[in-house]
Design a binder for these strands. Structure first.
Length: 504
RNA sequence: GGUUGGGUGGCCGAGUGGCUAGGCUCAGGUCUGCAAAACCUGCUACGGCGGUUCGAAUCCGCUCCCAACCUCCA
């Protein structure tokens, strides 16, 4: 295993060489969804980004424990209402039915996008005891106080003893936060407005509630991630990821809770590397239901939306995501999707073309063979540089030209040894399918005729007839067949080794 | 107002001091009966204004614009 993987650590704001705590092993924690509604496309982007990161770590030979939680309690709305509880009321369901319903939908969407399931997918509601224990530890360390049945994290006390750790991730200065909001004196139970609840007293009408040393209540949002990452990955672990909208307050609070609950107040508690994915925009603006600037994954699949002119399958969308670096904002526009759809088709076609190539060079590999090998090495090297999928893909597309030129005869297969071609084929397969997680003939092609035996036979017959017409120089008949097929959605391509056809 | 991250060619989107990705589109060419596809070639851009430097898209300052989070939020 080479050790030259670099990743951008949000904590230091620099690219760092990745050094795991235990050689050969990686503990990876990613904040999962709150399951109170259908999965948002932005979530899909975030989890797909981390899926590629997970896949690449596996590819590097690491044994990875990938923990991604399901939040089904504690995440409140602006007015203090539990998100799960509210949705349960609206749908007339038990809160846990709501959680189940949207968890199933979430898993289905992850499967369509070919995301690996995590190693462990713990639920917040299944870890109440661990969360209560963590609250007790934070209290014991003097970084929290009980107030009227709730327990609050004491940010000022924590920062006094921990070298201003709180605020480091998000770049916030705690003094400024205090100065700005001190005179607002809104929340009576808190000592300071910057303090946040780690255990909350349940009001009479609050459904999700558990007994605790402080009375009936429920854990604060933020706490579940600290408790579950500690339980499954340890007090210190390697990588923590999430969308950058979670940086503050969620991740900042997580860090404080991890450090604040650590038995000897260790500064290094929690994750060593923090990775944040950027947001998904549509037409340059944030996706927002209220102003109609939104689209669901389903609408993209079917094309049933005023925002798009075409349908876009999950694999093509995955390719689209690969073209943008995970730390850059991704702008979803119909033009960009159209370009990506064509690019993806070109890539997959080149892959298919590669299957039919045979190296003709001897033991000695020629220039083209060396280019193939070098290009692939370069593509993998880009992945080592903070998972730079757009650049890796750029290298792959340079190879696409080589593959097509070998097929078309512009380059000679004499220039490629059999061994080099075999290695290239398997190396490219690993990159495209294992690391990028694309699927050849995946869900995008369903219903498009691929693998349809009857159609295939009909096409053989039609092309045979057309071939005869061409031999007879009966161009009228030949073109009539071609035009007719095109109208039916079948494109005919005359190559030097016979005629091929494809849908669309 | 604060914090963080952005503004790159017709459209996307990498790149972080000189070697100037890639995809899509467009133009020319090769191939083809004609097309399509494929291949080759071309299109030299970095929001604005200053500054540092032999040299800046890349560093510094100011400014404009966009986004997320925060400022009220249990």
């Amino acid at each position: 295993m080479s050790n030259d993987l670099k990743l951008y650590n949000s904590l230091s704001r620099e690219k760092e060489v990745f050094t795991p705590i235990t050689p050969g092993h990686v503990g990876l924690y990613v904040c999962g969804p709150t399951v109170y509604s259908d999965v948002h496309l932005g979530n899909v982007r975030t989890f797909t980004s981390f899926d590629i990161i997970y896949r690449y770590l596996l590819h590097k030979g690491y044994q990875v424990r990938y923990v991604r939680n399901i939040t089904d309690v504690g995440h409140l709305r602006d007015n203090g209402e539990d998100r799960m509880g509210k949705q349960a009321r609206l749908e007339k369901l038990e809160p846990m039915e709501v959680a189940q319903k949207y968890t199933v939908g979430f898993h289905e969407m992850m499967r369509l996008f070919n995301n690996h399931p995590p190693s462990i997918e713990p639920r917040a509601s299944g870890h109440i005891i661990e969360q209560i224990t963590m609250v007790e530890e934070i209290l014991k360390n003097g970084y929290a106080y009980e107030s009227n049945g709730s327990v609050y994290f004491d940010v000022e006390a924590f920062n006094a003893k921990n070298d201003g750790l709180y605020g480091k991730l998000s770049g916030r200065k705690i003094d400024e936060l205090l100065a700005e909001s001190r005179d607002l004196n809104a929340q009576a139970d808190k000592k300071n407005p910057t303090d946040f609840a780690i255990w909350m007293k349940a009001t009479d009408d609050h459904i999700l509630r558990w007994p605790s040393p402080w009375g009936e209540g429920f854990p604060g949002w933020h706490l579940e991630c600290s408790a579950m990452s500690t339980k499954y990955l340890g007090e210190e672990f390697d990588i923590h990821g999430g969308g950058n909208d979670l940086k503050f307050p969620h991740h900042e609070n997580e860090i404080a809770q991890n450090a604040g609950s650590c038995s000897d107040g260790c500064q290094n508690a929690g994750a060593h590397y923090w990775l944040h994915t950027n947001m998904l925009l549509m037409n340059g603006r944030k996706m927002s239901k209220s102003d109609g600037n939104t689209i669901t994954p389903q609408q993209l699949f079917t094309g049933d939306s005023a925002h798009v002119t075409d349908s876009y399958g999950p694999m093509m969308l995955r390719f689209f995501m690969l073209q943008t670096h995970y730390r850059s904002p991704m702008d979803l526009t119909d033009d960009a999707l159209q370009a990506a759809k064509k690019g993806y088709a070109r890539l997959m076609e080149a892959w298919a073309n590669l299957q039919n190539l045979e190296g003709e060079g001897g033991a000695q590999n020629g220039t083209v063979g060396k280019e193939l090998t070098a290009g692939l090495v370069a593509a993998y090297a880009e992945m080592d540089d903070d998972f730079n999928t757009p650049k890796a893909l750029a290298k792959v597309f340079e190879l696409v030209s080589r593959i097509n030129a070998l097929k078309g005869g512009q380059l000679s297969l004499q220039e490629v040894s059999k061994v080099a071609l075999e290695d290239f084929r398997s190396g490219l397969a690993t990159l495209l399918f294992d690391v990028f997680g694309l699927q050849d003939g995946g869900p995008d092609l369903i219903g498009m005729g691929a693998g349809d035996e009857a159609l295939s036979k009909v096409m053989d017959l039609v092309l045979d007839l057309r071939d005869q017409a061409r031999t007879d120089k009966n161009w009228g008949m030949s073109d009539k067949l071609r035009d007719g097929l095109k109208e039916a959605g079948v494109v005919v391509k005359d190559g030097k080794d016979g005629t091929e056809w494809s849908m669309g």
